[in-house]
Computed example of a mutant assay.
Amino acid sequence: MNLQPSKEFLLKLAHTKMPYGKYKDRYLIDLPEYYIVWYHTKGFPKGLLGKQLQTIYELKLNGLEYLIRNIKTF
């Protein structure tokens, strides 16, 4: 089982914006940490958005947001 995200997933993640709610149209990587933690506590949505938010959570938890911000510049 490959747990490493694919290049395509990371590229899409870097350019995906929140589709609804208070932070609609904000890049996922730019969502406030408390908001991502709230999703972690309450449960991530199903599907691709949930996987993306879960990845953002892990990146923020480990201080790796800069990786996605670097990708976003391409």
Rank of each mutant, 00 (worst) to 15 (best):
M1G: 12
N2Y: 14
N2E: 15
L3D: 12
L3R: 11
L3P: 06
P5E: 09
P5M: 06
P5Q: 10
P5Y: 10
S6T: 14
K7S: 09
F9H: 10
F9M: 11
F9S: 09
F9Q: 10
L10R: 15
L10D: 13
L11P: 02
K12W: 08
K12R: 11
L13Y: 05
L13R: 02
L13M: 05
L13C: 05
H15D: 03
K17E: 05
P19Y: 07
P19L: 03
P19V: 03
Y20K: 08
Y20E: 10
G21K: 02
G21H: 03
G21M: 01
Y23F: 04
K24V: 08
K24L: 05
R26M: 10
R26D: 07
R26V: 12
R26E: 08
Y27I: 02
Y27P: 03
L28Q: 04
L28E: 04
L28P: 02
L28Y: 08
L28H: 05
I29P: 04
I29H: 12
I29E: 08
D30C: 02
L31R: 00
L31G: 00
L31P: 00
L31S: 00
L31Y: 02
P32F: 06
P32C: 04
P32L: 04
P32I: 03
P32D: 02
E33R: 06
Y34R: 01
I36H: 02
I36K: 01
V37I: 06
V37C: 02
W38Q: 00
W38N: 00
W38R: 00
W38G: 00
Y39M: 06
Y39H: 10
H40L: 01
H40V: 01
K42A: 03
K42G: 01
K42T: 02
K42Q: 04
G43F: 05
P45D: 12
P45K: 09
P45T: 10
K46T: 15
G47A: 06
G47M: 07
G47C: 07
L48M: 07
L48Q: 09
L48V: 04
L49W: 06
L49A: 03
L49V: 01
L49C: 02
G50K: 13
G50V: 13
G50D: 15
G50Y: 15
Q52D: 07
Q52E: 12
Q52L: 09
Q52H: 08
Q52S: 07
L53R: 00
L53V: 00
T55A: 13
T55S: 12
T55Y: 13
Y57P: 03
E58G: 05
E58Y: 11
L59E: 06
L59Q: 07
K60I: 08
K60N: 09
K60C: 06
K60T: 07
K60W: 10
K60F: 11
L61P: 01
N62K: 14
N62Y: 15
N62P: 09
N62D: 12
G63S: 14
G63H: 15
G63A: 14
L64C: 11
L64D: 12
L64R: 14
Y66M: 13
Y66R: 14
I68C: 12
I68H: 10
N70R: 12
K72N: 11
T73K: 11
T73S: 13
F74G: 13
F74D: 12
